[in-house]
Design a binder for these strands. Sequence first.
DNA 1: AAGGGACGCAACCGCGTACCC
DNA 2: AGGGTACGCGGTTGCGTCCCT
Length: 283
Amino acid sequence: MGRQPCCDKLGVKRGPWTAEEDRKLMAFILGNGGRCCWRAVPKMAGLLRCGKSCRLRWTNYLRPDLKRGLLTDDEERLVVDLHAKLGNRWSKIAAKLPGRTDNEIKNHWNTHIKKKLIKMGIDPVTHEPLDGRKQPQQESPTTTSAHSSTVTAESKSMDDQQENKHVNDTDKDVTSSGEESSMPQSSSVNTTTSVGITNHDQDPLVKWLMEEEEDMPIGVVDESWLDLTASDNIDDLNIITATTPWDIVGATDWLLDYQDFGVEESSLLVDVSMVDNSSRSNL
DNA sequence: AAGGGACGCAACCGCGTACCC
DNA sequence: AGGGTACGCGGTTGCGTCCCT
């Protein structure tokens, strides 16, 4: 079947979003409780963007439940473990990291974790030792997760200089560790749980994945919260006067309901305060 | 101080698929 | 059942920022 372009290329704005566009999109989505198809969003919100672009902007940047900043060590370990099991299924991985987007995780993987794995002599694709390289680890290479679980801790010391540089560069999210309350500790903390396990069904991590398969994905905005935000008058939400999405978040009582889908209020507020200046300046 | 390279993030592209008619 | 539409996803690219020389 033929496939139509997602949007008319003519008259459709591309490139970085402006603060005004963000404000319009945010106001529209909150004002309508998400009850509209994305294709219609730009027109109704008064944006010269295609629906796809709007959806991406919302899911990857404007969504109020998003954490911001670098992944914590625990999150990073979990990503490596999950990648060993799931491969490049970033959305599945992201679903297990509250407040993180697939795009964010994908970027972090490509820019940080991949390099660390290679430095460790581990193939980032297969999680097996790279050919012709001696394993730096003495442990048995029987499973991929056995490697992956130890990679970040090891590479952290190896990459201290790099990481310090990065932290200095970005100056963000350095205090956000230890915020993951709902994650199982088996895969990322107890790094030996999967050693010697050849059947992934026996892996606690895989079990956890299976158990939560039916759950609502964490990080996917449930319409129920959008209903909470729905208002006939978007001014009620201080949309117009707010200068950033985080200002909007801070101005709304429905923030309290975030606990309902796994994002703790406290961590969200901390993250709001940690938004780096460059991000703010874009808004 | 300036230029070039590296890095990191945001955004785009195009395919797969679920859903509706 | 098959066509059309919309959305989700993973891969890739563009560009701004930072660092090193």
